[in-house]
C-alpha cells in the first residue's frame, strides 16, 4: 500500500503534466485537422465525375498529395517537414512545434475518412433535394454532412486514436506527453512501473474514446 502511495506521490505530477500535454496536442491538432480535412473530404466527393464540382484535375491533384503524405510514417514526416514547421509557427520544438506535423499527418487522413463517410450518403436523397431547388451548399451541410454524421463520428474517433499514437513520438522534439514520459522514464531510466502506468492510461484513453465514439454514432444513427 505504502509503495503505491509513494509511487503516486512521486509520479502523479509528471503523469498529470504528460496527460495535459497529450490532451493539448491531440485536441488542438484534431480541431485544425478537422477544419482542413472535412472541407477536403467534401471537395474529394464533389469533384468526382458527374458531381456538382466535377473537376478531374483538382481531384487528381488532391488524390496525389493526400496519398504522398499518407505514405510517409509520422516519425519521418516529423523531421522531413521541419523547415515548413519553422516557417509556419516559428519554432520546431515543444507543443507548438509538433502541432504542425501532427496536422499535416492527420488532416489528409481525416479527408479520406470524410470522403468515405460522405460517399455512403444515399445519392437519391441528394437528388431529391436538388429536385426541390435547394442550393448545393445547403445540400452539402443539411443533407450530406447531416446524413453522414454517424459515420463521420466513427471516422473521427479512429483519427483521434491515431493522433494519440502519433503524439507518442512528439517527445522527440521536446513536446512531452504520455508517450514521451513512458519512453524517457520507463525505457531510458529503467522505471518499468512508470511505463506500465502510462500504457494503462493510454489503454483507458483509447478504450474510453472508442466507446464514446460508438455511443455517439449509434445515438445519431436512426435506422
Amino acid at each position: 500500500m505504502s509503495k503505491i502511495n509513494a509511487f503516486l506521490e512521486e509520479w502523479t505530477p509528471y503523469l498529470w503534466e504528460a496527460l495535459i500535454e497529450t490532451f493539448q496536442m491531440v485536441s488542438i491538432s484534431l480541431i485544425i485537422s478537422v477544419l482542413i480535412g472535412l472541407p477536403l473530404g467534401v471537395l474529394l466527393v464533389l469533384t468526382r465525375p458527374g458531381k456538382s464540382l466535377d473537376n478531374k484535375y483538382l481531384l487528381g491533384f488532391l488524390n496525389v498529395i493526400i496519398n504522398i503524405i499518407r505514405s510517409v510514417p509520422f516519425i519521418i514526416l516529423l523531421f522531413f517537414i521541419l523547415p515548413f514547421t519553422k516557417f509556419i509557427v516559428g519554432t520546431t520544438i515543444g507543443v507548438q512545434g509538433v502541432i504542425v506535423p501532427l496536422v499535416v499527418f492527420t488532416a489528409p487522413y481525416i479527408a479520406r475518412l470524410m470522403e468515405n463517410s460522405l460517399l455512403e450518403v444515399d445519392r437519391g436523397v441528394l437528388e431529391a433535394y436538388e429536385a426541390m431547388g435547394i442550393k448545393t451548399k445547403d445540400i452539402i451541410w443539411n443533407v450530406m454532412v447531416r446524413e453522414a454524421k454517424p459515420s463521420i463520428i466513427l471516422g473521427l474517433t479512429i483519427a483521434t486514436i491515431g493522433l494519440i499514437g502519433a503524439t507518442a513520438m512528439a517527445g522527440l522534439v521536446g513536446a512531452g506527453g504520455l508517450g514521451d514520459l513512458a519512453y524517457r522514464f520507463g525505457h531510458l531510466r529503467y522505471e518499468p512501473s512508470v511505463m506500465y502506468v502510462t500504457v494503462a492510461i493510454l489503454i483507458i484513453l483509447v478504450q474510453g474514446l472508442q466507446s464514446i465514439g460508438n455511443f455517439a454514432a449509434a445515438k445519431l444513427k436512426k435506422d
Binding site: D122, G124, V125, E127, A128, A131, M132, V143, R146, E147, K149, P150, L220, K221, K222, D223
Partner: peptide, 11 residues
C-alpha cells in the same frame, strides 16, 4: 418529385 426509393433523410 417523388421517387421509388422515397429519398427521405434517415437522420
Amino acid at each position: 418529385m417523388i421517387f421509388q426509393g422515397f429519398n427521405l433523410l434517415k437522420t
